[in-house]
Design a protein around this nucleic acid. Structure first.
Lengths: 136, 136
DNA sequence: TCCTTCCATCGACATCTGTCGATGACCGAC
DNA sequence: GTCGGTCATCGACAGATGTCGATGGAAGGA
């Protein structure tokens, strides 16, 4: 359990989130996927980001962080609901940060993670079928 | 090369596509992901579908099939542009079909594959951030 | 100063995954 | 019936991946 964990005595300021442009890893911007054949390079980049979320533990981490108070959470908040060891949780968080899907903000002893909505939306835009777009 | 491949002498009828409801494997319906914590079971189901597209070869296969004439393609159309062996292409196609992202229609000697737009849209809906929804 | 707590990294291990060549099943043409 | 072409499956292999315990570094409190 998180015996000595902070449990609520944190400011929980809403972070600015979503870096304006060219932030973090890249997220493999906006090709509709079902529009024209992907190049090998584009496919590799997209696959790297998708592999980051194609894991039960990491999917749950994303939803746990997003649903947490203030939209951010520290590692100690995530270990127990996930049921995995602390090194494993830390490993998964690192993968998500390197994929640009989470941001890490170290404040004092704690490291706070927050989702990057723009990254998830970019992935959604790539997968969505253009038929859902009425402007054509 | 596809020496004896049909190369265009096929009807190329537009298939009905997208099975009405409850088709194929399931696609792990519509939870916004950044809404509330995913259950372990839901996360596992979602991850299984995401793993299916989290691969460069399979991403290219999806886009190749979608961009092909008539929205469908046979294996022999995909081997050369992908640069992989026929068994490998067949393997990837099987993974995509089992994930409900492609349909397989065997006509004579050829097996025609077509994308399931509803499956991709469902995935996009799960990843998209609710902030993109103005109705709240 | 020392101790406690939080977190990241390391090394090891079992398992999953992507790829291939070889083979077999199936269909259509001659 | 036989042959050629398309596709799926099998077995094998190297490499990537998820998990853990042990360890180390850094910040803050007694």
């Amino acid at each position: 359990m998180n015996a000595g964990c902070h449990t609520g005595d944190v400011p929980t300021r809403t972070l600015p989130l979503v870096p304006p442009a060219g932030g973090s890893a890249g997220v493999a911007c906006c090709a509709p996927l079902t529009r024209e054949p992907l190049s090998a390079e584009t496919a590799a980049t997209l696959a790297r980001t998708l592999k980051a979320i194609a894991d039960p533990a990491r999917l749950r981490l994303l939803s746990l962080v997003a649903a947490h108070e203030g939209g951010e959470a520290c590692v100690c908040d995530l270990i127990e609901p996930l049921g995995l060891s602390q090194p494993t949780v830390s490993h998964h968080l690192k993968v998500l940060v390197e994929a640009g899907l989470l941001t890490r903000d170290k404040r004092g002893v704690w490291a706070y993670f927050a989702v990057v909505p723009a990254a998830l939306d970019a992935l959604a835009a790539v997968l969505a079928t253009p038929a859902a777009d009425p402007a054509r």
